[in-house]
Each structure stands twice: as structure tokens, then as C-alpha cells.
Amino acid sequence: TSSHKLRLYERDDYRGLMSELTDDCACVPELFRLPEIYSLHVLEGCWVLYEMPNYRGRQYLLRPGDYRRYHDWGGADAKVGSLRRVTDL
């Protein structure tokens, strides 16, 4: 099985509160109590970021690497509604 891990930060450049995720999350704002995510670091696996909860809205593919600001993943703003692991490519 492949492993997945990413870290979410409330501010750009990996500042502020950090939360780690290793499984799908249908509602990021509810789980982490963060209305917006300004940076993230994908440590393992690929993920799909959705701008709205319950895997809706615009989708962004996140490969392992650094995303210091939301425009690094192509986002128009810092809204992160849900995240899902990519298990098949």
C-alpha cells in the first residue's frame, strides 16, 4: 500500500498553526478549525485538493513538494474545502 502525508499551514511560508493529514478529509475547515490554508507541504503520495467541502468545486492535483503560497498549487484563493488521496494514477 502507498502512504500519504501532507501538512497544512494557516499562513504562507509554513507559518502559523500546522496540521498533518494522512487520510481523506471531506471538510478541512471543520476538522482543523482553519477557515483558510495558505501553504502546504506534501511529504508522501499525491493528493487532490478541492476548493469546497465534500470533494466539490475546483480540483488541484498536488504532487510531493512545497506549496509556499496558494497560487503555487494554482488556487485563486486560500480556500481548501476537502482533500482526497490519489490511490490510482
Rank of each mutant, 00 (worst) to 15 (best):
P64Q: 09
C46S: 15
P64L: 02
D88Y: 05
E44N: 13
D24Q: 01
D88F: 02
K79R: 13
L89C: 11
E36Q: 15
Q59S: 13
P53W: 04
V48Q: 09
D12Y: 10
Y50G: 01
V28E: 04
V86P: 02
Y70D: 01
Y14I: 04
L43I: 15
H4R: 02
T87W: 11
L40K: 05
G74C: 03
L34R: 13
R85E: 05
D12T: 12
M52E: 14
Y67M: 04
V86L: 10
G45W: 01
C27Y: 04
H4A: 02
N54A: 05
Y9L: 02
E20M: 05
M52C: 11
L17P: 12
L62M: 03
R11V: 04
D23M: 06
E51C: 02
G65F: 00
E51P: 02
R84W: 05
C25Y: 03
D88H: 15
D24K: 07
S82R: 00
L8K: 04
E44L: 06
R58P: 04
Y50I: 15
E51K: 01
L83R: 03
I37F: 12
L8M: 14
F32M: 09
Y50D: 01
G81R: 03
R7T: 06
D23I: 12
E30A: 09
L17Q: 14
C27K: 12
T22F: 05
G75D: 02
L83C: 13
P29E: 13
V42W: 00
D66V: 06
L17D: 15
L40V: 15
G45S: 06
C27G: 05
L89Q: 15
G75W: 01
L31G: 06
S39A: 05
G75L: 01
D13K: 10
M18C: 14
L49Y: 03
G74T: 04
E36R: 10
Y50N: 00
R58G: 06
E10D: 09
D12P: 10
T22N: 06
R33A: 12
E36L: 08
W47L: 00
G16V: 05
R68N: 12
V48A: 13
L62H: 01
Y60V: 10
H41V: 08
G45M: 01
D88W: 04
L61I: 14
K79I: 06
W73A: 11
Y50V: 07
E20Y: 05
L6Q: 03
R63D: 04
E44V: 07
V80K: 03
D88N: 15
G81N: 04
Y67Q: 08
S2I: 13
E36T: 14
M18I: 07
R58Q: 15
E30Y: 06
L17S: 14
S19T: 13
T87I: 06
L21P: 02
W73H: 07
S3N: 14
L89W: 13
Y38E: 12
L43W: 06
G74Y: 03
R7G: 03
M18Q: 05
Y60D: 04
K5I: 08
M52N: 11
R7W: 04
C25G: 02
H41Y: 06
G74S: 05
H71M: 10
G16P: 02
P35V: 06
Y38R: 11
G16Y: 07
C27I: 07
Y67T: 00
N54P: 01
V86R: 05
Y9N: 00
A26I: 06
L40N: 01
Q59H: 15
Y9T: 00
A26T: 10
L34S: 12
G16C: 06
S39L: 03
E10Q: 14
L34E: 13
G16L: 06
W47Y: 00
Y38G: 12
H4S: 00
D88M: 07
L8A: 10
G74N: 09
T22S: 09
Y9W: 03
Y60R: 04
K5T: 05
L34I: 15
H71W: 11
R63A: 12
D88I: 05
A78K: 10
D12R: 11
R11I: 06
G57D: 01
D77R: 09
D23N: 11
D24R: 04
L17R: 12
L31K: 11
C27E: 07
P64F: 03
K5A: 06
Y67R: 07
S2G: 09
R84C: 04
L49C: 04
D13G: 09
V28F: 04
D24G: 02
R56G: 11
T87F: 11
G57M: 00
S3D: 10
P53D: 07
K79H: 09
C27S: 15
L31C: 11
L8I: 12
D77Y: 07
L61E: 14
T1K: 11
R58H: 15
S2K: 12
R84I: 06
G74L: 04
E10H: 07
R68E: 02
R63F: 15
F32N: 09
R7E: 07
K5Y: 13
R15L: 09
V42P: 00
G65E: 03
C25W: 07
H71L: 12
L43H: 01
R85C: 09
D88E: 06
E44M: 05
Y55T: 03
Q59M: 08
R85A: 06
A76C: 10
E36A: 11
C46R: 07
C25A: 05
L89F: 15
V86W: 09
V42N: 00
A26K: 12
C27Q: 07
H71R: 11
L21R: 01
S39I: 00
E51T: 12
Y55Q: 01
R58L: 01
Y70T: 06
D66Y: 04
A78Y: 03
Y67W: 04
V42H: 02
P53T: 08
R58I: 12
R7K: 05
E51Q: 06
N54E: 10
R15T: 12
L17K: 14
G16A: 05
C46A: 13
T87S: 12
L6R: 02
R56Y: 09
E10Y: 05
V28C: 09
E30S: 11
R63I: 00
L31H: 11
L89P: 15
L62R: 00
D13W: 05
L21A: 01
T1S: 15
S19K: 13
E20N: 00
R63M: 09
W47E: 07
K79W: 03
T87L: 13
R84A: 09
Y55D: 01
E51G: 03
G45R: 01
V42F: 00
G81P: 02
L40P: 03
D66C: 07
P53K: 06
C25Q: 00
M52Y: 12
R69K: 15
T22R: 08
L40F: 07
P29N: 12
D24T: 02
Q59Y: 14
L49D: 05
W73L: 03
R63C: 08
D66Q: 10
R33Y: 12
V28W: 02
L43D: 09
Y70R: 09
Y67V: 07
L43C: 05
W73F: 07
V86A: 09
D77T: 13
Y38V: 14
W73Y: 12
F32G: 11
A26H: 09
E30Q: 12
L17N: 15
G75M: 00
W73V: 05
R15F: 07
E30I: 04
E30D: 11
R85W: 01
D13M: 10
Y70V: 13
L31D: 10
R84H: 00
V48W: 13
D72A: 07
E36K: 15
E44C: 09
G74H: 12
D88S: 10
M52V: 08
E36G: 12
A26W: 05
D24W: 03
Y67S: 00
D24H: 01
G16R: 06
K5G: 01
L17F: 12
N54D: 11
H71D: 07
